[in-house]
Structure formats: C-alpha cells, structure tokens
C-alpha cells in the first residue's frame, strides 16, 4: 500500500520535472534501468578509447596527434563521470568494472568495428560522436540528477569531438582521388553501424515504455535516429561524399529524410559478441587492467604506511 503511494509521489515529481536524487525513494525498476543504462554508457566511453588509440602513433601530423590524444583523454574522463553517477545508485565501482571485465555488461556495439584507415578517425568523430551527441543532448534532461549533471558536462566537452572528425574527413574528401576514396570507404563502413547506435526500432525496444514514462529517456530511439540523419545528410553533401543508402530521400510531407532498413541480423549478432573486434576489445581492456595491478598495489602499500605512521604519532 505504502509503495503505491510512494510510486504516485515519485511519478508526480517526474511529471513536474523535479529531478530524482540518490537519497530519494525510487522504484526498484527505475534504479535497475539506470544502473544498466549508465554503466553501459560508461563502459562505451572506456572501450571507445581503443579504436582511436589504434591511430595515436600513426597520426599524420603533430597537430592531429595532440588533438586525438586530448579526445581520447576526454573519453576516459567521460567514462569516469558516468561511473560516478552509476555508483550513486548503490552499486560499487568495482562491481560495475567486474561486469565489464567478465563480458556480463554490454557496451555500444559500434566499438567492435575496426578502424582501418586514418579516414576512419574522421568517420568515428563525425558519425559515431555525432550520433552519441544527439543522444546525450537529449539525456541532459533525464530525470535522474547525477546522470543529467554528468551529461551536461559531457556535452560541453564533446562538442569539439565531432568537429575534429568532420575536419579530418572533409580534408580527405578534397584530397587526392585515393584520399577521397578512402573517405568514402570510411563513410560506407560506418554509416549503418552509426545509425544503429540508436538501438532497435521503438516497436522492438522492450525497455522504452517505462524509460519514457519515468523520463530516463526524453526521446525514443527512432526519434533520435531521425534527428541525426536529418542533420548529417547535408554535411555529407557539402564535402562531396555519398551516404550509402539508395532509399535515402527527402520527404516533403514529413520534413525529414526517409531511409532504408537497417540490417538487424548484423546488429544483434554484434550485440551478442559477434563483432569483428569484440574479443580483442575485451581482452585489451582486461590486459590493461591487469597490467595496472602493481600501481594499485603500490598505492595501497603507500596509504597503509602513511596511516600506520599517523597512528604511531
């Protein structure tokens, strides 16, 4: 009985756009949904460093290298902001990290695709970060306070990421015929995985109902995807590249682009761990974690020593 009353009060706060804070009562499903969503988001930022790290030592200029390094450092920071938000939901950092290490938790499938050429760094920034930004801008208004605050910070920092990617691909598109071909090839490979980053169609998305009612999500998968496509088509046109979708067509009536159907068999196969780089990404993450063992050991030994000194004094 009391729970029904609490649930009504909770929904009234959500409806009145009052943020939910860590110590407030919340339905168990709301907590679980956020734990899953925020930690997956955090894992994606962390794993997302790998495809770009692949090009760090081969960046074509010092400027490109400095920029890429700053961008990768931002991704690490964004992962940490998000783990902090996830931890306020009563689950420890170590628990979340273990779920990633063991492969129990998911991260965005896009990072299981390889980055084969420098043009891919352009496509990743322009399309992958571009799609992430559309999602994150909408999440700035999510109902859970710590998540919303994290998103505001992330969006502020993220704005240079997309521009740096677009600059790379625009430069290549106006380069030699080989460079232009490389840019087109990167677009061809990253287009469909990017628009699939928004997840399944609303009609096939079992978590959408409550997430919208509780304002965890402020827009549905299909709405966000449409918004991304509508703003990206023109960007491709002005640099002379072609989006690899023969069904892409302006729909005057809707004021939006119509587009072709995505390959959902591929989507689900990659989600379930069948992506070209899935095993490599997880192994690399675990190796990096295990290689840091001595640092954690040393830090702990130092703290223990300081504490015992203090106790003696």
């Amino acid at each position: 009985m009391e729970d029904i009353k609490k649930l009504e009060e909770f929904q009234a706060k959500i409806d009145a756009e009052i943020k939910i804070e860590p110590k407030d009562w919340m339905p168990e499903d709301y907590r679980k949904h956020l734990q899953r969503q925020i930690s997956q988001h955090a894992h994606s930022e962390i794993i997302g460093m790998q495809p770009e790290g692949n090009w760090l030592l081969r960046a074509p200029s010092l400027r490109a290298k400095v920029v890429l390094l700053a961008k990768i450092q931002d991704e690490a920071g964004h992962g940490l902001y998000l783990y902090s938000a996830a931890e306020t939901l009563g689950k420890s950092r170590t628990e979340y990290l273990n779920e990633l290490k063991t492969g129990k938790a998911k991260y965005s499938s896009i990072f299981n695709y390889p980055t084969l050429t420098w043009a891919d760094m352009g496509a990743v920034g322009w399309l992958v970060d571009g799609a992430a930004i559309v999602n994150q801008v909408s999440l700035q208004r999510t109902s859970y306070g710590p998540y919303a605050r994290g998103m505001v910070k992330i969006c502020k920092e993220e704005s240079f990421h997309q521009r740096q990617g677009y600059e790379i691909i625009a430069d290549m598109a106006k380069g030699t015929p080989e460079q232009k071909e490389m840019a087109q090839d990167a677009l061809n490979r990253f287009w469909w995985p990017s628009i699939m980053m928004f997840g399944p169609h609303d009609s096939d998305s079992p978590n959408t109902g409550n997430a919208v009612k509780w304002k965890i999500k402020r827009a549905t998968n299909d709405q966000l995807r449409q918004s991304f496509i509508d703003k990206t088509v023109h960007q491709a046109e002005i640099i002379g590249l072609t989006i690899p979708d023969p069904d892409l067509k302006w729909n005057e009536e809707r004021g939006s682009y119509d587009f072709g159907e995505m390959d959902w068999d591929e989507f689900w196969s990659v989600v379930k761990g069948g992506g070209p780089c899935s095993k490599q990404r997880l192994k690399h993450y675990n190796d990096a974690h295990n290689n840091g063992e001595w640092v954690r050991e040393a830090a702990k030994a130092y703290t223990d020593k300081q504490t015992s000194k203090q106790n003696v004094a």
């Binding site: 700053a70 450092q73 931002d74 920071g77 940490l80 902001y81 902090s84 950092r93 605050r149 994290g150 910070k153 920092e157 954690r296 830090a299 702990k300 130092y302 703290t303 300081q306």
Partner: peptide
C-alpha cells in the same frame, strides 16, 4: 563530482586531470 583514489595526494592529482582539463 567525485573520483576514487588511494590517498589525498592522488585524489588531488586525479581531480586535476579529471575535472580541470
């Protein structure tokens, strides 16, 4: 925001890296 660190010096260093880029 917050962060994890073994001791206060590491906490300050990490805060510098994480929150003042």
């Amino acid at each position: 925001g917050n962060l994890h660190a073994a001791d206060k010096e590491m906490a300050l260093q990490n805060a510098r890296d994480l929150y003042t880029r």
